[in-house]
């Protein structure tokens, strides 16, 4: 038990039970009041009563966060319950949809669209609130992407989309003193720990960092940056590029 989040209010959302539990329990043990939102009501009720049984303060939200109205209701419920929101941790679970090429648009709608809408809807209302209080921390935890290889396409799409969204949210919220970061993790407990660390320390509005967290490792990733370039003051011709690109842009290496 600690005091890092004494007097703070944390909103925790997501469908991944391990993750929601680790985050809620950790923030509660450091003194935060918790609202946990999960569609599995029986499970989340039980988790919250466990927190309350050990001297925590937690409440359950039962909102469908793919609905804008419900996302707004969750924010209102949290503020009505505890007066504010200091921390918003979104646990984004990505179902493996296999390759998008083997499935149909209805399947993408099922897997990609709800996750994206959920993150947008909740972040919109939470950030509107944090803007009025001129403080806050938002963490988007993306479960289980291997950062380079062996990932499903849906996972890759959602991960990159959420990272883009996270970075823009950080810029949008910079002048209101609100941070927004992303944690990619396959380890629930350490993901919770690093999120809590970010919320208690890493207040660098406008810069969103991308963490990768595993059982034993905590890593920090850069944004993609320009590695190499070729330049011409004239407009290139395709013939010129045919010569220059393999030789200079990719340094003669065979690309994988």
């Amino acid at each position: 038990m600690g005091d890092r989040f004494r007097g703070k209010v944390a909103l925790v959302t997501g469908e991944d039970h391990d993750l929601i539990k680790e985050i809620s329990t950790l923030f509660a043990s450091e003194g935060a009041a918790i609202v946990a939102n999960c569609s599995h009501s029986e499970w989340v009720e039980r988790m919250v009563s466990e927190i309350n049984a050990v001297d925590g303060v937690a409440k359950v939200g039962h909102f469908d966060l793919t609905s804008m109205a419900d996302a707004e209701s969750l924010l209102n419920f949290t503020v009505d319950s505890f007066g504010k929101v200091d921390v918003f941790v979104s646990g984004i679970e990505i179902r493996d949809g296999g390759s998008v090429l083997d499935s149909v648009p209805e399947k993408w709608d099922e897997i990609i669209r709800p996750v994206m809408k959920n993150v947008f809807a909740t972040t919109k209302y939470v950030s509107a609130h944090m803007r009025t209080q001129n403080s806050g921390q938002i963490v988007n935890i993306i479960r289980d992407k291997k950062i380079h290889h062996d990932i499903s396409v849906t996972n890759s799409i959602i991960t990159e989309a959420i990272i883009g969204f996270t970075r823009t949210t950080a810029l949008d919220m910079e002048k209101y003193g609100v941070g927004c970061n992303a944690v990619i993790s396959d380890h629930a407990r350490n993901a919770a720990l690093v999120s809590a660390y970010i919320c208690s320390n890493l207040v660098t509005p406008g810069i969103s960092s991308i963490f990768r967290v595993d059982e034993q490792e905590v890593s920090l990733y850069s944004v993609p940056a320009i590695e190499r370039g070729i330049y011409s003051s004239d407009i290139f011709s395709v013939d010129e590029l045919n010569y220059l690109v393999p030789k200079y842009l990719f340094d003669g290496e065979e690309l994988s």
Partner: peptide
């Protein structure tokens, strides 16, 4: 110019063989 962007690059990594604790992160990060 025509440029090529890097993949997301690992900047730095911290390793601990037993369970991470809050205080480790305070110090290490």
């Amino acid at each position: 110019p025509m440029t090529v962007y890097s993949q997301r690059v690992l900047m730095r990594k911290l390793y601990k063989s037993n369970a991470w604790q809050f205080d480790d992160l305070d110090f290490a990060i």
